[in-house]
C-alpha cells in the first residue's frame, strides 16, 4: 500500500495555546484510518490541518509526495475532499445541484465529461437519488447528511476526510456511510474518518489514530489501539473491551455502575 498523506511532527499553536503537538500519522491508499479521541482532543483542528485549511505552526504535511502548502487550491480540490460536520446551504439549491457542485474542481479538465455519471453514481450510492429535485434547505438532517456525502463522493478524490459523518444518521445509514468508505478504500482511496463511537470504529477502520490533548498517543491497527487500559486513561472513564461473539471484533463499552441483582 502506498503512502497518500503523511503528517510529520505537526504542531499548531493558536494564541499561545498549543492545540496540536508532535502529531505523526500516515494514511495509505486502500485503508480507513479512524481518528478518535475525547472532546477537545484536537480532532477537528487536525482535520483542518490535514485538509490544508490551517497551516501548521510546526512540522509539515505531505500529500501524494508534495508538501500541502505547495498545492494551488484548485489542485488540492482534485486530491482531497472533506465532509464537514454541519451542512448548511445559504440559498435553496436543489439537492441535485448541490451534489453537482462537487464536480466544480474538474471543470475544464478532461475528466469534466464524467460529471453526469459521477453525480448519478454518488447519489445512488448514498441513497439520495430520489431527493435530487428537492431544495436542500427543505431536507431533514439525515437527508442533508447523505446529500452532503454524495457531493464529497462526486468530487472523486484520492483522499477523503470525513468529520463525524455518522452523527445525524440512523443505524442503517451509519452502516451505509461506513460501507461506502470501505468501498472507496478498496478502490484505492485513502479515508480518514472522525468518529465518536468506538465500536463503530472497531468494526470499520483498518487502523486507528488516538488523540489526547493534541498529541497522537497511539497509531496502529484497530485491535492494538482499542486497549481497555489505554482508552480508560485517555477518556478518563473506565472502559471495557469485549470481543464480539461472531468474529471477535472489539466492542467498547463504558463501565457503568451495576444495580444489585
Amino acid at each position: 500500500m502506498t503512502e497518500l498523506l503523511h503528517a510529520d511532527a505537526v504542531g499548531c499553536t493558536v494564541g499561545g495555546r498549543p492545540l496540536l503537538a508532535d502529531v505523526r500519522l500516515t494514511v495509505r491508499r486502500g485503508e480507513i484510518l479512524a481518528l478518535l479521541g475525547p472532546n477537545g482532543a484536537g480532532k477537528s483542528t487536525l482535520l483542518s490541518v490535514l485538509a490544508g485549511d490551517r497551516r501548521p505552526t510546526d512540522g509539515r504535511v505531505r500529500l501524494d509526495g508534495r508538501p500541502l502548502a505547495a498545492y494551488r487550491p484548485a489542485e488540492l480540490a482534485r486530491l482531497r475532499a472533506l465532509l464537514p460536520q454541519h451542512h448548511e446551504v445559504s440559498f435553496p439549491f436543489a439537492a441535485g445541484e448541490v451534489v453537482r457542485m462537487g464536480r466544480a474542481p474538474w471543470a475544464g479538465t478532461p475528466r469534466a465529461g464524467e460529471d453526469e455519471q459521477a453525480v448519478a453514481r454518488a447519489m445512488a450510492a448514498t441513497d439520495c437519488a430520489h431527493l435530487a429535485a428537492r431544495p436542500f434547505t427543505a431536507l431533514s438532517g439525515g437527508e442533508r447528511a447523505r446529500v452532503a456525502l454524495a457531493r464529497i463522493l462526486a468530487q472523486d478524490t484520492p483522499l477523503l476526510l470525513l468529520d463525524e459523518p455518522t452523527a445525524a444518521l440512523d443505524l442503517r445509514h451509519q452502516e451505509l456511510v461506513l460501507r461506502i468508505a470501505r468501498e472507496r478504500a478498496e478502490a484505492g482511496r485513502g479515508v480518514i474518518v472522525v468518529l465518536h463511537d468506538l465500536t463503530l470504529a472497531a468494526a470499520h477502520a483498518d487502523r486507528i489514530a488516538l488523540l489526547d490533548a493534541g498529541r497522537t498517543v497511539a497509531v496502529g491497527p484497530t485491535g492494538e489501539v482499542l486497549d481497555a487500559a489505554l482508552l480508560s486513561r485517555v477518556y478518563r472513564h473506565p472502559v471495557e473491551v469485549l470481543a464480539h461473539p461472531h468474529g471477535g471484533a472489539p466492542i467498547v463499552l463504558p463501565e457503568r455502575p451495576r444495580e444489585a441483582d
Binding site: 487550491p73 484548485a74 489542485e75 488540492l76 464537514p84 468530487q155
Partner: peptide, 8 residues
C-alpha cells in the same frame, strides 16, 4: 470552507 475545498 467547503467552497475553499472545491478550489475557490
Amino acid at each position: 470552507r467547503p467552497a475553499r475545498h472545491l478550489g475557490v
